[in-house]
Design a protein around this nucleic acid. Structure first.
Length: 154
DNA sequence: GCCAACGTTGGC
DNA sequence: GCCAACGTTGGC
């Protein structure tokens, strides 16, 4: 059984439409240890809610899938990258990312306010831990959000 | 643009 | 190891 996750991206930087255009992308730039550790747990085939943060409104825009498990994030070693981390080295990479692929754009965007208003989702982390950019999602939560977004059977 | 929440850094 | 200072995230 695949696990389920939520990944946040600012749509001004990289949106679900960008992923739809690209087909797949390497999820780089995560610089939080808890988020990194969660990404390292991801396995190929795991399903991802694609969340637009710092948007108006914020919310879930689509679904992606883990295409490749975690590997070192090369932007940490690149001095020209905004994600450069001088404490990361090639021998001991500090940060990781995963490859994700586009699955679907939800027919209806599911705003954060709707997630918060749904009793079934009262324990969902995105409604409580607003600053964690990579989150585990329960199977029931994943299904409920897809249904709220008007998606058909998977 | 503001600010609350919260993660990280670094002095001691 | 503590904790103050600081920086960042992200909702509003």
């Amino acid at each position: 059984m695949p696990r389920h996750w939520l990944l946040k991206s600012e749509p001004d930087v990289y949106s679900i439409d960008d992923l739809a255009r690209d087909g797949r992308t390497f999820w780089d730039g995560v610089r939080n240890y808890q988020a990194r550790n969660l990404m390292r747990e991801m396995e190929v085939g795991d399903l991802v809610l694609f969340y637009h943060s710092s948007a108006s409104p914020p919310g879930v825009a689509g679904v992606a899938r883990v295409a490749e498990a975690a590997r070192p994030d090369p932007t940490a070693l690149d001095p020209a990258s905004p994600y450069h981390d001088p404490k990361s080295t090639a021998d001991e990479p500090r940060w990781s990312g995963v490859e994700v692929e586009f699955v679907e754009r939800l027919p209806r965007f599911v705003p954060l306010g709707s997630l918060k208003a749904e009793p079934e989702l009262s324990e969902m982390l995105v409604t409580k831990r607003s600053r964690l950019s990579v989150q585990p999602v329960r199977p029931g939560e994943f299904a409920a959000v897809r249904a709220m977004g008007g998606a058909g059977d998977a």
